[in-house]
Write a protein that binds this DNA or RNA. Sequence first.
DNA 1: GCCATGGTGGACCGCTTGGTCCAGTTGGTG
DNA 2: CACCAACTGGACCAAGCGGTCCACCATGGC
Lengths: 205, 205
Amino acid sequence: MSDGPKTSSEPRTTRGRATRARIVERAAELIAAHGVDATSMDDVRAAAGASKSQLYHYFSDRDDLVEAAVARRCALVLDELTRTLGAVTTLAELERVLGEFVAFYEQHTMGCPIGTLASAVADRNEGARLRVAAAFDAWERLFADGIQRIRERGELRAEAPPQTLATALLASIEGGLLLSQTRRNAASLRIAVDAALRQIRAFAA
Amino acid sequence: MSDGPKTSSEPRTTRGRATRARIVERAAELIAAHGVDATSMDDVRAAAGASKSQLYHYFSDRDDLVEAAVARRCALVLDELTRTLGAVTTLAELERVLGEFVAFYEQHTMGCPIGTLASAVADRNEGARLRVAAAFDAWERLFADGIQRIRERGELRAEAPPQTLATALLASIEGGLLLSQTRRNAASLRIAVDAALRQIRAFAA
DNA sequence: GCCATGGTGGACCGCTTGGTCCAGTTGGTG
DNA sequence: CACCAACTGGACCAAGCGGTCCACCATGGC
């Protein structure tokens, strides 16, 4: 489950693990800041204070490093999402969390950390694509589990379908973020999220 | 309204206009097929059967050509969308058109022609970003106008907000396409579009 | 028929890119 | 403490990139 067959070599010493981790960490930061295509191996090398041979010692090629960095970034984002969504058990909490989410993007005009990776990687790096797909799955499950808890609590009727509602909510968020990023105006995101939320509320008991 | 201040020179002869158009056309095709970042000036040059000096005669730099190609691609896509959405006047027609839309993506796994451009260009080419934003606006308006016609026809109640519903529908489509493209499975798109449609149907008279 | 202007061909340039190679250092184990 | 695999540094390379330059061709108004 750790990773694909492409990885050059797994570090065997403490120092090696630290070096590899430093490279992945810096690569993930650079990619998050400037995008996959605008991040070169040499940028990573410099930021990590490593040498060329180290990059190619731990990663078979650029795609391999990108995949690791994408996986790392997804893990970080999912940590944050789990922290805010993992404990949601009421409709009010879900609405509050999503409200804060939208409020954040009203102040920081940017794309979705995961969605941006998705379209940068989808048709070009199969390994990285799978990592992003897994991140979407995990995010969607956080929504689905939360909705299910709300339902079990009795706030939603039994026929409310958590999985479907979660998919629709995630799609609204991703689409809303793309529209808002392109328009440099968070209004679209707010409308999209409100619509998805209304859809859920339609199943209120 | 024609274009920005960056354009090197507008062709003054029939031959010049043909050459410029050929370059833009091929650039738009290559970008649609392989993405903005994977399309080099030399790829365009070869595909258009032109010389380097011609590219830089008609466009000040790569960004300028990308902007023109993006605008061209958006225009083509919008033509098609206008053809299918422009005449929608009933809920059933809207549902049919969207059903065909989803069906298409169930067979051809790919991203949204416009959405893909959006995220490739949003933070890197301001001129192109504005073209994509305008395309989103036009698409959204096609939806809004259609919903309004449906409402005026009496199929939707007076309080149905065409503009808001159009934004939510577009966001659902874009998000659904991104999820489906990443997952290589059109199920997410179908769910997202169904949800948006249900939202509209909720205002049925 | 001349000639200015717009259009064209393609060699050329400096730079960055992903990737290779090998000599040297480090550090855990027998 | 010796050894060997793991690790490191960085010079080096070919290919591809965006972009420049200049000599040459086409054409329509005088």
